[in-house]
Amino acid sequence: MQRAYLSKLMELCEKDSNVLHLVADSGTGYDEMLKRSLPKQMVNFGIAEEHMVAAAAGLATAGKIPFVYTAGAFLAYRALEFVRDDVCFQNQNVKIVGMGSGLSWCSLGPTHHTTEDVAVLRAIPNLMILSPSTPNQVAACVEQAYAHKGPVYIRIGMSNEKEFFAEDYKMPRNGQDVLCEGRDVLIFTTGSILEEVMEAVETLQAQGITATVINVAQVKPFDTTFLYEKADRVNAIVTVEEHNVQGGLGSLVAEGLSDRGIGKRLYRIGLQDTFATGYGKNQKAVRKENSLDGSSIAMRIREICQ
């Protein structure tokens, strides 16, 4: 996803000289090309995330469109007040891009995990939240963030995510895609954990349980059309997120159901108000340790459907 993000951003930078790539010592091999060909549009603020976010707000007052890029945890938590006061309250055209969503920083542990960012940030007015699941979706989200005049937070994963969308994928108006339709369970998911969900759906299908999967790329504002359209047709609704179930996608769906008075049972799969445990060389191992891999998700949904 990082590569997809940076190549899309480079495209925007070439098109619009007001687009800026701001990093906090967080550049990677992928932005070398941007640095070489558009040096004036890349600024490294050093290891100073709060300062970078506030300075981005200052740049935006003069018509610049800064894309602030570093680990999601350092933006959503450390720089929170700067995101709130300087970017969101002032409604500045700043794009905050948190990389390493969920458990992507699998070898570094909870200080780097980004498993409460949606909960924290969705409470802030004026902020659009995008949570792409695959590289092609990242490109569409960056395009959407650029087109939207105002603050946007994009949470992206790291690398090697499985692709489920076409190369020319365009984000639907409601920010949600139906990946498959089934009759037993309605699953909402967001972010790169989509690949685990799709693996689970395959396993469940072999066991005679079919699922509708809705991938939510635009978390805020959250569109409830699919939820209301499909909730009555299934026995159970499930949310799957690589995030605390408190305040994230599970809460969004719960609020949606409750707002409409739909008395359907909702099962929220995610971190159950805990920090994730374990370390691993790859994300899958840490997902497994926290019961968020495909087979754990399939097992849980089978229990729910029984």
Partner: peptide
């Protein structure tokens, strides 16, 4: 030019503004 109130924000925003003026 900037909403302030929480201390320690204004100078960083000013850096962004001065940077934009230079750009």
């Amino acid at each position: 030019e900037a909403t302030t109130g929480s201390l320690g924000h204004g100078l960083s925003m000013s850096v962004g503004m001065a940077m934009a003026q230079k750009m």
